[in-house]
Simulated scan of single mutants.
Amino acid sequence: MFRISPLIRITLLSLYVALTVPLPFLSEATEAPVPPALLWVGLSLGAVALYAALSERVVLDARGIQVTYPQWVPSLFRKGWFLPWEEVKALKPRTTGQGGVVYYFSSQSGEGYLLPMRVAGFAKLVRLVSAKTGIDTRDVRPLAQPWMYLILLGFTGLLLLVDAWTIATAVGVG
């Protein structure tokens, strides 16, 4: 079983907090028409939704590859998938709008399944896929490297410092 990388999880959850937590304080300080309590409810629901999206699990076994989510994540919110090894036809690269490359499993029926790339142990995942399917995966690389998330986490930390100052100013401490 492969889970989303802790570095990616922490970075994205921290960025969400940094971008949203000042809003209720600013709403109150500026007497905005949206009450802070409503913003807190919305931000809490958004945090749960983000956490749910980041709870993806990739399971490889003798039968195939499967993307699943915990029981508490509603199936309407995030649907998983299962692809038996004998159905895997190829692993095809696709260029993203930003110039990166993602990979899709192409099935015998012509359907495409996105190769999960943000999991901890991605290199091991790719080796196991190669062993199970016989597909050459030597050129398969993750979309984003860990150093990119470390840089984003660093800037998120700086943003959290600015947030602390903003909140302190909004509540009248600063």
Rank of each mutant, 00 (worst) to 15 (best):
R94K: 06
G134C: 01
V58H: 07
A123W: 02
T11Q: 11
P36F: 00
L83F: 07
Q108S: 12
Y69G: 05
L15H: 06
M148H: 14
L91I: 08
Y69W: 05
V21F: 11
V48I: 15
T137R: 07
P116I: 03
L143G: 03
R78M: 05
L161P: 03
I65Y: 01
S75I: 07
R94G: 03
G64T: 06
P33N: 11
V102W: 10
K132G: 00
Q145C: 02
G121C: 11
V173P: 00
K124V: 13
E86S: 11
T20S: 12
K124S: 14
D163H: 09
L45R: 00
A53E: 13
L150G: 06
T156A: 00
W72R: 09
A123L: 02
W81T: 02
A90T: 01
F77V: 04
L91T: 01
P93R: 13
V67Q: 12
G97N: 12
G154F: 15
F2E: 05
L114K: 10
P146G: 10
I151M: 13
W40C: 08
L60I: 14
L23T: 14
S130N: 00
A47V: 02
K79L: 07
W40L: 11
V162R: 09
V88N: 07
L45V: 13
L161A: 08
L19A: 14
P24K: 08
L128D: 12
T156E: 00
A47Q: 01
A131C: 06
L150W: 13
P33L: 12
V17H: 06
Y113T: 00
T133L: 05
A49H: 06
F25N: 14
L39T: 02
Q108N: 07
G174V: 11
V58D: 10
V88E: 08
